[in-house]
Amino acid sequence: MASKIKVRVKLKGDVAEVKTLMMHPMETGARKDPDSGATIPAHHITELTFRNNDTQVMTVHCSTAVSRDPYFSFSYGGAKAGDTLSVSWVDNTGGTDSVETVLS
């Protein structure tokens, strides 16, 4: 399955500006199915990890209060063209997704 994470990285000198958007329902566990009235179980990303080559540059811990199809942005120093940025997440049901992008 193709990755459902989109990443854009802008290099400004040695600072990489990362913007990322991923597809995930981020169910809170409080919503009810409008037809059956059954509670929809929580299904949300718990941890999102960014690595530049093999160095961890950011970890994000998420609750159910992060919006559907989450968007995150941050910046880190010490980056250069040719570095590989990898983005990966795990959710509370054990699902995962990841993507790699080469800085340019």
Binding site: V57, M58, T59, H61, S63, A65, V66, P70, Y71
Partner: peptide, 24 residues
């Protein structure tokens, strides 16, 4: 919010304290 902590960013050294996201 029913559970107040929405999101937590862990910044290793070298990562800039400049983050953004979207919450409920």
């Amino acid at each position: 919010n029913p559970r107040p902590l929405a999101v937590s960013f862990e910044n290793p050294p070298g990562t800039l304290p400049d983050v953004a996201c979207r919450i409920k």
